[in-house]
Design a protein around this nucleic acid. Structure first.
Lengths: 356, 356
DNA sequence: TTTTCTTGTGTGTGCGCACACACGATTTAA
DNA sequence: TTAAATCGTGTGTGCGCACACACAAGAAAA
């Protein structure tokens, strides 16, 4: 068991003091060129790897991660990433990593802006948020660039130099995957009803991408047999309207066989559907919300694509810890798996969501 | 920013020295009942949580984890858990966690026994292995109990008091899931060919469990329309024989629509199949081996159920680190998700396999 | 009673590193 | 030419904890 190499060892080998070695390692300057070269050479030769445990202990500085998320309990989906972050914080708190949480109203760009400002003013060492409002998010990123706060995005990616890393789904591909599953369920032919249960759908890039993925897949699969009918419903909290709309569509287009709910609100559709005699609809939705899972087990939802919302949050905090404590470089994009969840394998995902 | 509570703080509050507090924390005795109670009470009151970083640093002891695995590169599946373990070791090595690897011949119980002995003699602090040979594994576990080496099983679970934790698949449920997917592919009726491409199939509990799961699902789904035809092939490395056998079966049973390969060797089937005019067979197999993925992308394999073999190994090491360094209790059973992998979502799983 | 053992407690050192500070040797400014 | 700033380097302290050791006081054994 070859003992670990310490800075003391390399100091001795290089014929200098540990302080000098330290200066070389941290590039604090104040070291002559020759000595620096010598130290680096010895470090190479001895294959020195700093003891991160000791390093963290001695560093002894708290890292504050600013977290800007939708108000807790305002929407079941948006609770997941935040809870994931809190779990992650629990597991890295002994590295001195803390969260500064700031919530905003999910449907108010103004509130988003205001909250962002409040958060930045607390001078966090990094920032995590989902760019729900594109324009305001870009402004925020500009602001972050000014005050030099590295940023991780979750849920939706946005191109901006200040974005250090994106953690989340590949929306387009999740649309493709939905196409695959729905085409299987349709047995060769049929119409897919694409349901956007959201506000400002046109402004939500990820929903657009999902639609694109679905359409591309079905076109490439069988242009003539499969078609997509799209319907945006902003008033998704009104079951009667939703049910009425669906009844109307089913009368008009008899060959609707499947429904693709593009976000986590599939359960709202199921709740709204009255038992009017209709052909069995195969429904595909997203995310392991309790309500969705309930209907999945009952057979009223056929597929859920798990976007790992909770794990997104978890990873965001873990990654920032890696970045600050362990000095790891982060990948610009981290696409999480698109898990296909059916009644038969739901339990394990649920368990994992709660576990880490 | 409430500063962390240290043992010094609680020593002060309790009116004792840090040494005494230390003794209470580690239950090393030599503390009077009253003092102990007082210290515990103060710890409660101040909500003391030990600084694990400082603790590990001061502890300063190397943990050696014994790893007993099939010879590398003898079977593509069995490479995965080992590689996962090595990756995990990389990421926890600064806690002083090291691996002692001992390989054995995948098809030789004797060699397993011999290797196990050699490993135990090196007195590792813990042991990880897959109980491939049931009888020999139980003996090994008895031996571990004697020398008090805690053990984690991967891949297959075995009931034994010395097993601290099992990490792996739920074999039965993976059979159920296979049933679900195959029944979808069969559109209401058809025969499933269950193919065990392995030796000593009857002795392999996980294969039996998969079959059970499949049969139960199909029975409950539609007893009359679905049937299962089972075939064990020990000579799976002989493509001609495999192809001949398949041709024969397809002639005999014209309603075979899908094939369930119960382990990671689906690619061997695909490689063996000649292009004799036959109905398209939907094939379901296990695990993200390069060959399997290749055929998945080509459309020759329809589904792969990912048993997270690599992650099993990763978790085993991570969990032992948690156990030894962070003093966490481990769950007796950790079932990993049964990922449904199709061509459209394979990339993300592959990426994750390589990532952590 | 003296000796030995046990019990309860405090003190001190070290884990490997980060960083502040000290200080002589140069270099630059006055 | 002397004072002041700068550079290159070494020393020392502390991060929070684990653990060995010291030591007094009382209990048990001789």
């Amino acid at each position: 068991m070859s003992k670990r190499v310490t800075i003391k060892d390399i100091a001795q080998q290089a014929g200098v003091s540990v302080g000098t070695v330290d200066r070389v390692i941290h590039e604090r300057g104040r070291v002559s060129a020759e000595v620096k070269a010598k130290v680096l050479q010895v470090m190479q030769a001895l294959d020195f790897e700093p003891n991160l445990i000791a390093s963290t202990l001695a560093f002894n500085r708290a890292i504050q991660i600013g977290v800007l998320m939708p108000q807790l309990h305002s929407d079941p989906y948006w609770d997941l990433p935040l809870l994931g972050m809190r779990r992650a914080q629990q597991s890295v708190k002994h590295y001195g990593v803390g969260l500064v949480e700031q919530m905003f109203d999910l449907f108010s760009p103004q509130d988003f802006k205001r909250s962002a400002l409040a958060l930045i003013n607390q001078k966090p060492d990094a920032l995590v948020f989902p760019p729900i409002f594109l324009k305001e998010s870009l402004e925020l990123l500009d602001h972050c660039a000014e005050v030099e706060v590295p940023t991780i995005l979750v849920n939706t990616d946005v191109e901006h130099p200040q974005v250090m890393s994106y953690i989340g789904q590949d929306s387009y591909q999740s649309g493709v995957l939905a196409g695959k599953l729905l085409s299987m369920a349709m047995n060769g032919a049929g119409k897919v009803l694409l349901l956007n249960l959201d506000k400002e759908t046109l402004n939500a890039k990820h929903l657009m991408d999902k639609e694109l993925g679905l359409r591309h897949f079905l076109e490439q699969k069988d242009k003539n047999s499969f078609t997509v009918l799209r319907q945006d419903v902003e008033d998704f909290d009104n079951p009667e309207r939703l049910d009425g709309l669906l009844k109307l569509l089913l009368q008009q287009y008899v060959d609707i066989k499947t429904v693709f709910v593009t976000n986590s609100r599939a359960y709202k559709l199921v709740e709204a559907i009255q038992e009017h005699a209709q052909p069995h609809l195969n429904i595909l939705g997203f995310d392991l919300l309790p309500n969705n899972l309930h209907f999945l087990q009952m057979g009223k939802i056929d597929f859920l694509i798990n976007q790992n919302a909770s794990y997104q949050g978890y990873l965001a905090i873990k990654n920032l810890t890696d970045y600050f404590i362990f000095k790891k470089q982060l990948p610009r994009v981290q696409h999480l798996p698109l898990d296909i969840v059916v009644a038969e394998n739901a339990a394990y995902y649920l368990q994992r969501e709660q576990g880490n």
